[in-house]
Write a protein that binds this DNA or RNA. Structure first.
Lengths: 142, 142
DNA sequence: TTGACATCGTTGCACGTGCAACGATATTGA
DNA sequence: TCAATATCGTTGCACGTGCAACGATGTCAA
């Protein structure tokens, strides 16, 4: 039997290509405007909604290896965007929290992020909600 | 005004997480069973449907930087899965082609790939086609 | 109390990647 | 004809990442 296989219609490939293009474009935007990498942006975005939180928690919630979180946090601290303080209850934990400067930065980025999302949704048209549903389904069944 | 932002419902983030999980799981499968990386798999998959083809062409068609294609091709040649021959018409081009051994390998991988895709589609249920449509829409509007 | 084990965050290391530069070859235009 | 320019594939390099190992701290059971 003849082997038929079309990479272009292979779902994992389509997903990977779409994702890397979207990420690259978005990453370029906030790298240029704010000097941030993707892990740094994820850490900030989580802190703004979760308050003071440990590296471990971010690692678990945001799909980043703990070493990535650790290094992102180190850079963010060096830039004055977050503070790192040992947890008084549990000396193993390090609490990360936004500084005022960091919060101001995040509040600049969020509108840019939302606008980029809106551009994506405009490109997707009525498929936008389908995409969200499908991705949510994948998330649930992991 | 209070800033509201939920990373979990941010589309680029959802897309990135879903994609990296799918890719990681799939990559692990054919790394373990066949010793292949993602770029190598893409090169093989393209060769099986396109015949003898240049590095440049694969680079353009398969969303891989040409250095990645070049290195993947070097490894595949070392493993005896493809041949690299200079194009007689244009000395700058290198034609890549599957060897018999490479073709036999690809014919082993394809069923595994299709099965993994089927598992994904099973998880997605009736959202599978939505996802395909949405990804196609993103592809078109790039 | 204390020893074994678990968890946290950091770090060393190997590796893959993106990007730019390079030599080699082709093409183009004067 | 030949100099300028473009294209192709490879490679050097800097950098980010995943993984494992580590020291420090905490937990738990004997």
């Amino acid at each position: 039997m003849k082997q038929e296989f079309d990479l272009d219609s292979f779902l994992p490939y389509q997903l990977s290509v779409a994702s890397s293009r979207v990420s690259r474009a978005f990453a370029e935007r906030y790298r240029r405007d704010f000097g941030l990498s993707i892990p740094e942006w994820r850490v900030l975005a989580h802190l703004v909604q979760a308050g003071a939180v440990s590296v471990r928690e971010i690692h678990a919630r945001v799909d980043l290896d703990k070493s990535r979180v650790s290094r992102a946090a180190a850079r963010l601290e060096a830039a004055g965007h977050i503070s790192k303080t040992p947890d008084p209850q549990d000396g193993r934990l390090v609490k990360l929290a936004l500084t005022d400067r960091g919060r101001a930065l995040v509040e600049q980025i969020i509108p840019v992020a939302l606008q980029y999302q809106a551009e994506l949704e405009a490109r997707l048209g009525n498929e936008a909600n389908s995409l969200r549903r499908a991705l949510a389904r994948l998330e649930e069944t992991t």
